[in-house]
Design a binder for these strands. Sequence first.
DNA 1: GTCTATATTGCGATAGAC
DNA 2: GTCTATCGCAATATAGAC
Lengths: 201, 201
Amino acid sequence: MKKDAQTKLIETATLLFAQKGFNAVSIRELARTANVNSALISYYFGGKDGLYQEVLEEQFILIAQMLERFEESPPSSPTEAIITYANNISAIHGQRPYLTRFILSELMNPTPCCEAVVKKYISCIFDFLHTIFKEGVAKGEFKAGLDYDFATISLAGIMNFFFIAKPIFQGFTSLEKTGEEYTAQALDTFLNGILRRKDHE
Amino acid sequence: MKKDAQTKLIETATLLFAQKGFNAVSIRELARTANVNSALISYYFGGKDGLYQEVLEEQFILIAQMLERFEESPPSSPTEAIITYANNISAIHGQRPYLTRFILSELMNPTPCCEAVVKKYISCIFDFLHTIFKEGVAKGEFKAGLDYDFATISLAGIMNFFFIAKPIFQGFTSLEKTGEEYTAQALDTFLNGILRRKDHE
DNA sequence: GTCTATATTGCGATAGAC
DNA sequence: GTCTATCGCAATATAGAC
């Protein structure tokens, strides 16, 4: 099946922007890789920035759907919510392997799209997790005194860092674990760390 | 005290490269910001790449010193080693607030310096932590079955993510905690998660 | 819708005056 | 050691033919 220029551009741009960053990719390289005339980038997307924004928005579709699902059917408990959230994020990483790269690129060197696209979703996730941790402490499921900001950033950190570090760590270790196995173990450790325990050894 | 052009260029470059990334900073902008003639960048550093490499190497000096100290006086136990390591990293982040940005930028979009500078240090840290986790499991301090790769990446993730996420999270939460407070709590949670426990609740 | 050709801007680097 | 001036090149964007 032959794809039209528009689709091929989006696909190629996703790959190239993810691998090299927005500034390091020229529309010439993009067009060449996609086997498409470079003038079509302006024709379809109004320029390089427009194409990038389209790519970026596409990356967040699954996140948006996840947040909708949580709104429709709220989890039964905070611990349950964290587990479901982690499983969802893990699955999303499988389908959008470059999502973390796009987010981190934007966090570190924001493009004009950052405010409109990235911050919007990050802020929703932040609020979502924040509420869960608050409830978890209130209900006695999580350690008393747990800082909500801290817990949120910490969970985000361990759920995402693997996908950034993977390429470099593969240089000096076999790293046979998959992303799913990693996130499962990371979540386990994290929950182990924040759950309230009856003992005080 | 008036600084010479060379020093001012390094300082300005550190700031600009960290905030915008290598590709997004031009030598003209750099020279303008540093109040220095742009030709001096070639004169002193042999070009933009040379200046960047100088900046990058400077970022890792404290890491190198930390690793030397560990070689000279090894910690008494794996748990002790992790705690000391975390405290050191936390202190280094205080003195090199952009270190994480440089590392992550390189991890995601490697420049030619990456192989020579970044990978070298990352690989040393990786080996160091890997050995500690191995010893910790062998001595029964850490959970049996703990995956060393996983534990290493996980610890790196929680120790670093805060410093990347900070700028954006400050947009929608007060985030009054300092980096030191964050890393202390992150380490606590992490150790809590990996330490062997006598109970099995 | 897709192409060529080109306008315009900005880049990094350097030669040469001082 | 610092400056000006400029070279050569690659960038994005667009006008206009087909």
